[in-house]
């Protein structure tokens, strides 16, 4: 099943849902999930240039972060990074969605039509109906592309809002919840991601104990 799974992940150009994978493999979702995690571990153990991510609600193969420079020497990135105004607007939409332009502008204190347009064009936000108030303003929500842009799987991974202090990082690399993925081989190269993984383990442990 793992080899078949690898095929599916290879042909897809977007994150694949567990249900779709299960249907294609004619297997139970739970078995597919086990296989996904096994594949994730295998890729890491054999020092593959690829890794398996949980991103934008699905599963997708990506290159490992330590090879980004190599790749950048061959491919050049098209899209520009978000401006500060874009980032700020996106953050507000993400937490307050669905939100209208006037509501957004009330928070930011500036008119935001241009920024919204840019974010729409980049498909980081989308229109989601209209608010049934005076003028029926358009409501905006974030898109799956938004999750993908920040490398997170769902909105619950957004940092908790607090006025001061840094916020924990997301699961950007392999889901480190099961510790076996932290092989000795990736210690040196991706320090940042190692830190990320440790954080995640802590968070998960905390939520587990709460559940009990």
């Amino acid at each position: 099943m793992i080899a078949a799974l690898e095929c599916l992940l290879f042909v897809a150009g977007e994150p694949l849902l567990l249900t779709d994978l299960a249907r294609a493999l004619q297997a139970e979702e739970i078995d597919v999930e086990v296989a996904l995690r096994t594949l994730q571990g295998e890729l890491s153990e054999r020092g593959s240039g690829l890794q398996l991510l949980q991103i934008a609600g699905g599963w997708q193969l990506s290159t490992r972060p330590e090879y980004s420079e190599t790749i950048a020497r061959m491919l050049s990135r098209g899209a520009n990074k978000l401006t500060r105004a874009g980032m700020e607007t996106l953050a507000i939409v993400a937490y307050r969605q669905p939100i209208t332009a006037p509501e957004l502008e009330a928070v930011r204190g500036v008119s935001s039509g241009g920024v919204l347009k840019t974010l729409l064009e980049r498909r980081l936000i989308q229109e989601a109906g209209r608010k049934e108030t005076l003028g029926r303003p358009i409501l905006y929500t974030t898109t799956p592309d938004f999750l993908h842009y920040f490398g997170i799987s769902d909105l619950s991974q957004l940092p908790i809002l607090e006025s001061d202090g840094p916020v924990p990082a997301p699961v950007t690399a392999e889901d480190a919840a099961d510790g076996r993925l932290e092989g000795p081989d990736d210690e040196s190269s991706d320090l940042d991601l190692a830190a990320v993984e440790t954080k995640t383990v802590e968070v998960d442990a905390a939520s587990d104990s709460e559940a009990i």
Binding site: F10, V11, A12, G13, E14, L53, Q60, L61, S62, T63, R64, P65, S68, I71, L75, R77, K81, L82, R84, M87, E88, L90, A91, I92, Y95, V107, R108, G109, H148, Y149, F150, G151, I152, L158, P159, L161, E162, S163, D164, P166, V167, A169, P170, T172, D192, L193, V196
Partner: peptide
């Protein structure tokens, strides 16, 4: 306003990390 501004830095870090990863384009 400050609340949302506080998350911008985190999102910026994530953006940077994620930009180091490459995906296969559409099939």
């Amino acid at each position: 306003y400050q609340l949302y501004q506080g998350t911008v830095e985190t999102l910026r870090t994530w953006e940077e990390l994620r930009r180091g990863l490459y995906f296969r384009g559409a099939a």
